[in-house]
Nucleic acid binder design. Sequence first.
DNA 1: TTGTAGGCGTTATCAC
DNA 2: GTGATAACGCCTACAA
Lengths: 343, 343
Amino acid sequence: MRKSPSGIKEIARRVGVHHSTVSRVLNPQTRSLVSMKVAARILDIAEALGYRRNPMAVGLKTRRSFTIGVIVPDLTNPVFPPIVRAVERTMGKEGYVTVLADTDNSIETERFVLDSLYARQVDGLVLATALLNDEIIAECRKRQVPFVLVNRTIAGATATSVVTNDSYGIRLAVEHLVGLGHRKIAYVGGPLNTSTSKSRHEGFGEAMRAFHLRADPRITYECKSLTSDAGSTACQSLIQSKRRFTAIVAANDLLALGCYAALDAAGLRCSADISVTGYNDMPFAEHFAPPLTTLRIPLTEMGNQAALLLLRKIRDPKTVLPSVQLQPSLIVRGSTARPSQSR
Amino acid sequence: MRKSPSGIKEIARRVGVHHSTVSRVLNPQTRSLVSMKVAARILDIAEALGYRRNPMAVGLKTRRSFTIGVIVPDLTNPVFPPIVRAVERTMGKEGYVTVLADTDNSIETERFVLDSLYARQVDGLVLATALLNDEIIAECRKRQVPFVLVNRTIAGATATSVVTNDSYGIRLAVEHLVGLGHRKIAYVGGPLNTSTSKSRHEGFGEAMRAFHLRADPRITYECKSLTSDAGSTACQSLIQSKRRFTAIVAANDLLALGCYAALDAAGLRCSADISVTGYNDMPFAEHFAPPLTTLRIPLTEMGNQAALLLLRKIRDPKTVLPSVQLQPSLIVRGSTARPSQSR
DNA sequence: TTGTAGGCGTTATCAC
DNA sequence: GTGATAACGCCTACAA
């Protein structure tokens, strides 16, 4: 076992003071308790020795790890990397290290992962995995770990979260389609156990009503997952149902992509025959065939905000944090057009 | 400061043994030193109390953190999430937690981040940031931290790495194009300070020679970064140069995407006028317009292998690890076709 | 097989 | 202001 290169005691020895004095100096919080002269000497030597405080020891003593966890359902979903990156960067600037966990959409692995994080005494959590009724989040509350939700929230929105206005986003999509002349609009949504899918679903109904149109339940689908495959399957049934529709509002870009595939397979052209909108404006959405009309959400901003909120909570556990809601914006591209005359 | 729910001493008290005995039992390594009867009792109570060992204390004592770091240049590059995810999962199964760091392609932030990781006594590192001449990796060696490179390696390949055979991949692309009838093939590559870009570049030259063609330096470009924008700029100059070419081999999917844009802007159609190949088969490459012919590399496999190697090294620092090289495979899609007659 | 004692590097709470 | 001392929770010779 190699000796550590330096340490508070070694510095104390060299400077000729007690190591507790060194500790005080090296800790910004308590530096003022020590005379400037001594402090300066200590800082000097520490610098010269390349001193780095040992987070393990600090953690053991203070029960703080300067580590936070961020938990995502699936890192390969392009929505999450920008968020993770932003969180990591913002926390990094403040001396926190972020450990990443990908639950692969499994609630068991989420529980497992959280256990490991608790054991490591993470100072906080950013959760992108919230279900509407999420027992895991209930546990977080019990454990008294500061946490903030990102992207999704829970039923009642009783936890601090950074989300976007999903129903408004969908309304923008519907508005756009209606403006183009669409009347028969199908909806391909995600599982209703997440806040995002739920509000998008509700938003669709509301928007249609607002335009005096009918959200026909026979052409609205709830997919089991937010994947391209699921979207494809849904769109396929939609087509086979023989119901009339000229546009599809998808609750997610991946679903929209699946719709592309199904339309293609059925010999229908997007946007000439059927218009499609997505949601998220995921990276490269503009490169799809056709470029996808979708809703952009400020992912990096969400990550930053989440990190900032978490920091506040960590530093002052008594503060009650506000939630923040950001606005999506409609990005019009080639997947939407006037409805085909023949349909 | 809340008392921890349990702890080795509490268990000892309840069982009526000394806490060192408990420690032995709770540590698989030393469990055999204790009688089965006592061990069983201890395990029982520990279970009942929901005991979790405190990694801080363990770490302080043993200088191991059961934490590894994975460092990527840019998490929003879709190549990395699958790798990161695989590493995280494989390490997680073995009780390791992975800290993610995104250097944003900056060598300073990489250094900063590594410093923070060293201080936290990470047990190992997975680096996806290697430059051909990488001083940072030299430092890792000095620090004696086990590490393995992934995706890229360094000059001389003197460190263990998990990479793919880049020159072979490019050769597959060239072979494919030549098979289609192309003779004038342009190359749009990345900065030559990474092993991937370098071998792809070299591979291009070799492949062309193998087919008795000329890798014309006037139509080969070295982009400053592996981004869509850079590819676009390069392709633009290529077009403006008025040199003849019927196909572009891009060293990366993003570059290829940039070529799409530039071709589009110039009124050229891919693949009718110009064929384009990419590299990486990034997610959604099949959805581009046109679907991109590219080389698939086994990202998840790479992550797994890297993690496995790292584990071996951590567990037995004396082992000298082999490097592993995986093979890319050509995925033919719509961006390549026979050369246009008119060019 | 089990207990004893010391220590990992730091902070916190006393005294001086 | 500064020093002494005792933790934090666990591991590990060494002794019994």
